[in-house]
Design a protein around this nucleic acid. Structure first.
Length: 490
RNA sequence: CGGGGUGUAGCGUAGCCCGGUAUCGCGCCACAUUUGGGAUGUGGAGGUCGUAGGUUCGAAUCCUGCCACCCCGACCA
């Protein structure tokens, strides 16, 4: 274990990388751009999975699983979809290796596949090809299916959690009889994501819609939640797409309606990924390490005993046993770190690095006084408190920490939404302050692209709650009816 | 995929120009003293110098190919 991590001021990317590795969340694998998610990091992902999975089921969805490999021909069926993913696909061309006679293992050219298989970058095509066989009548609809899976996108540049070649996610794929119902589903799932990220990750998000330029390949409309990281860059934390009848038409999925007419099915898809882990790290952490919201922390309370003799240790053990039992009955996860191989100071630093929300330190002095020392990770404040009523106090504190972490991120986010009314102002804010910039835009792809070329900033979203307001586009001076949010993004 | 850079112990590095079998710190192991904020001392272990080839009596060092990673750009969740 190293000592501390790079300061955020020095180099944000380096700081982030150090943090992910030193906090024991993940590391790069021996495969280009892929990562190993280590047990501690995976435990957090599992917590996210558990909460999301329940939310999906509560909204009527079921889990299913579809193949990793997708025949190449499926891809070309939806024109804009292929175009969006063509440049980042891993392709399987052979199915066998052989020994070349000189001790080298080579690809057996005789085992060339007739049709190449694409390792899924997303599953719309294979799922809609399957749905064709599942749907005949309006009575078969809606289909509300979610899949937990890994996908591969061969990006040029990778970043732990934010953009790895292979990543874990869930993808929901639903089929509906009407456009209204599909749009309703798209919006419903966006709000499931928004609530989840705010209430569990403690990261405030802006719910909005993507512009045509930033839309998912194959979607009619893309809804998104956008978060702000501590370096002032935006991060797309989740998306929910209204796919219209695009995939139904591409895969010939029709149903007979109540009125006896043959119609194409309406579709949605929505997903969040291990990228959320990156959001969690970049939204809350400090130079001492990770700061985990209690709702997702694998260890919510760590107890560090401080003792010299076996008798002292014995007394502490007895006390902590009772405390652990009480906390567990409150569904609070406790780790009693009574390793005798590390000293207390080391343990303090280590658990801080790993983001444990609350630490209890207890020594012979405390046992005499009937106290313990409580240290909050979020504020770094330590206080000595009575042992009596400790369980209830911890429970209250965890809730308070969860709220405080969210509030701190919210304050930061809100103070980094800047309204501007001219292009000069726009560029100045990007340079000096970053964050979201709220301004008028003429609604054209051309303008968005020109702004991106000049400033690297893109339209993160058109907020759902944007109010109608007459204005002029900061770039072209053409009329506009509402403000959009620009930012540099990950 | 374009431009730049770097590969030496688990991590961070010196050595490379000027060729002679690898330096230092952290970490690791043992023992002792320690234990309320990342302990100290003594001793010890750990290396295909990214990889393949070439030059040479001899290569971490010189030459060539390849690979990986990092940064910037383009691409993107």
């Amino acid at each position: 274990m190293g000592k501390g991590i790079t300061s955020r001021e020095e180099d944000y990317s380096q700081w982030y990388n150090d943090l992910v590795i030193k906090a024991d969340l993940a590391e790069y694998a021996a495969v280009r751009g892929c990562m190993v998610i280590k047990p501690y990091g995976y435990a957090i992902w599992e917590r996210m999975q558990a909460v999301l999975d329940k939310k999906f089921k509560d909204t009527g969805h079921s889990n299913a699983y579809f193949p990793l490999f997708i025949p190449k021909s499926f891809f070309s069926k939806e024109a804009s979809h292929v175009e969006g993913f063509a440049t980042e696909c891993a392709v399987v061309t052979h199915y066998r290796l052989k020994n070349d006679g000189h001790g080298n293992i080579i690809v057996d050219e005789d085992a060339k596949l007739e049709e190449e298989l694409i390792v899924r970058p997303t599953s719309e095509t294979i799922i809609w090809n399957t749905y064709r066989g599942w749907i005949e009548s309006y009575r078969d609809l809606p289909i509300l299916v979610n899949q937990w899976a890994n996908v591969v996108r061969w990006e040029m540049r990778t970043r732990l959690f934010l953009r790895t070649t292979e990543f874990l996610w869930q993808e929901g794929h639903t089929a509906h009889a009407t456009q209204e119902e599909a749009i309703e589903e798209t919006e419903k799932m966006l709000h499931v994501y928004g609530d989840f990220v705010e209430n569990y990750l403690g990261v405030p998000v802006i719910r909005g819609r993507k512009t045509e330029n930033e839309r998912f390949a194959g979607a009619i409309d893309t809804y998104c939640i956008e978060a702000l990281m501590q370096d002032g860059k935006a991060l797309q934390a989740g998306t929910s797409h209204f796919l219209g009848q695009n995939f139904a038409k591409a895969f010939d999925v029709k149903f007979t309606s109540r009125e006896g007419k043959l119609e194409h099915v309406w579709a949605t898809s929505w997903g969040v990924s291990t990228r959320l882990m990156g959001a969690l790290v970049m939204a809350h952490s400090d130079d001492q390490g990770l700061v985990l919201p209690p709702m997702l922390a694998p260890i919510q309370v760590v107890v560090v005993p401080i003792f010299k003799t076996a008798e002292e240790k014995q007394a502490i053990d007895t006390f902590i046993d009772a405390l652990s039992t009480e906390l567990k009955s409150k569904n609070i996860s406790v780790k009693y770190d009574d390793r005798d191989t590390q000293r207390p100071g080391f343990k303090f630093a280590e658990w801080e690095l790993k983001g444990v929300p609350l630490r209890v330190a207890i020594g012979a002095r405390d046992m005499q006084n009937g106290t313990v020392e409580l240290a909050r990770r979020d504020t770094q404040i330590k206080e000595t408190v009575e042992q009596a009523g400790l369980g209830d106090r911890i429970e209250r504190l965890l809730n308070e920490i969860q709220e405080n972490i969210f509030k701190k991120a919210l304050d930061y986010r809100d103070s980094h939404i800047t309204e501007v009314n001219s292009y000069d102002e726009f560029k100045a804010v990007l340079e000096t302050k970053a964050g979201f910039i709220s301004c008028h835009w003429d609604g054209t792809v051309e303008t968005e692209k020109l702004v991106k070329e000049e400033t690297k900033a893109t339209i993160r979203c058109i907020p759902l709650d944007a109010k109608e307001e007459a204005g002029i586009c900061i770039f072209t001076g053409k009329p506009s009816t509402k403000r959009v949010l620009f930012a540099k993004a990950y």
